[in-house]
Amino acid sequence: MHQLVKAPIVLVRDRLNTHASHTMRELIEARKWLTAFILPSHAPELNAVEYPWAHVKRSLANLGSVAIDRLESLIRNRLKRLQDRPDLLDGFVAGTGLALNLPPPSP
């Protein structure tokens, strides 16, 4: 990603054992362009990814009897529709209460 965007990267990770491993810490420390933050234990309200998944799951609540292949199609459709709703996605980030301060564009 860093090579693609040619900009610093911010990594927000949870406390999954592989995310907090010695190897992961070494990988992060070796990359000066990477800033990493670890979420507190059990803090789904700070993880903006939780909000779109909750939104999709609510829209599927009454579809328990749908065949698995149809369910997969419905989930893909719901996620695709979210891509066309930047206002809603911004709301999910705002719901965390965290500020999204983008770095200035590089020259």
Rank of each mutant, 00 (worst) to 15 (best):
residue 85 R to K: 09
residue 15 R to S: 04
residue 48 A to W: 07
residue 93 V to A: 09
residue 106 S to G: 15
residue 54 A to P: 03
residue 33 W to C: 15
residue 46 L to R: 00
residue 29 E to D: 11
residue 39 L to Q: 04
residue 84 D to H: 09
residue 103 P to V: 05
residue 63 L to E: 15
residue 66 V to N: 05
residue 91 G to C: 03
residue 10 V to M: 09
residue 47 N to A: 02
residue 104 P to K: 09
residue 75 I to H: 08
residue 31 R to T: 10
residue 19 H to F: 01
residue 105 P to H: 05
residue 29 E to A: 10
residue 9 I to K: 02
residue 102 L to N: 05
residue 50 E to M: 13
residue 94 A to W: 01
residue 26 E to C: 14
residue 31 R to D: 13
residue 99 A to C: 10
residue 79 L to S: 02
residue 101 N to I: 07
residue 24 M to A: 11
residue 5 V to M: 15
residue 105 P to I: 05
residue 38 I to V: 11
residue 29 E to N: 10
residue 52 P to Q: 06
residue 80 K to M: 14
residue 73 S to P: 03
residue 53 W to F: 14
residue 36 A to T: 03
residue 50 E to G: 14
residue 50 E to F: 13
residue 19 H to I: 02
residue 59 S to W: 09
residue 11 L to Q: 04
residue 76 R to G: 02
residue 13 R to W: 09
residue 91 G to L: 06
residue 32 K to M: 12
residue 70 R to T: 06
residue 14 D to S: 02
residue 56 V to Q: 02
residue 91 G to P: 04
residue 73 S to H: 14
residue 31 R to G: 08
residue 93 V to S: 10
residue 102 L to V: 03
residue 92 F to H: 00
residue 42 H to M: 10
residue 90 D to K: 10
residue 76 R to D: 12
residue 83 Q to W: 13
residue 15 R to D: 01
residue 46 L to E: 00
residue 20 A to S: 14
residue 36 A to F: 01
residue 107 P to F: 02
residue 60 L to C: 12
residue 39 L to C: 03
residue 15 R to Y: 00
residue 46 L to W: 00
residue 73 S to I: 11
residue 86 P to I: 02
residue 68 I to T: 15
residue 83 Q to P: 02
residue 77 N to C: 11
residue 81 R to M: 14
residue 82 L to V: 09
residue 93 V to C: 10
residue 14 D to H: 00
residue 4 L to P: 03
residue 85 R to V: 04
residue 17 N to C: 13
residue 3 Q to E: 13
residue 61 A to G: 07
residue 19 H to G: 01
residue 15 R to F: 01
residue 103 P to W: 00
residue 96 T to I: 07
residue 95 G to L: 01
residue 47 N to V: 06
residue 75 I to P: 10
residue 61 A to P: 08
residue 50 E to R: 13
residue 19 H to T: 02
residue 57 K to F: 12
residue 6 K to Q: 09
residue 31 R to I: 08
residue 54 A to V: 00
residue 97 G to C: 08
residue 7 A to E: 07
residue 35 T to Y: 06
residue 17 N to A: 14
residue 92 F to S: 00
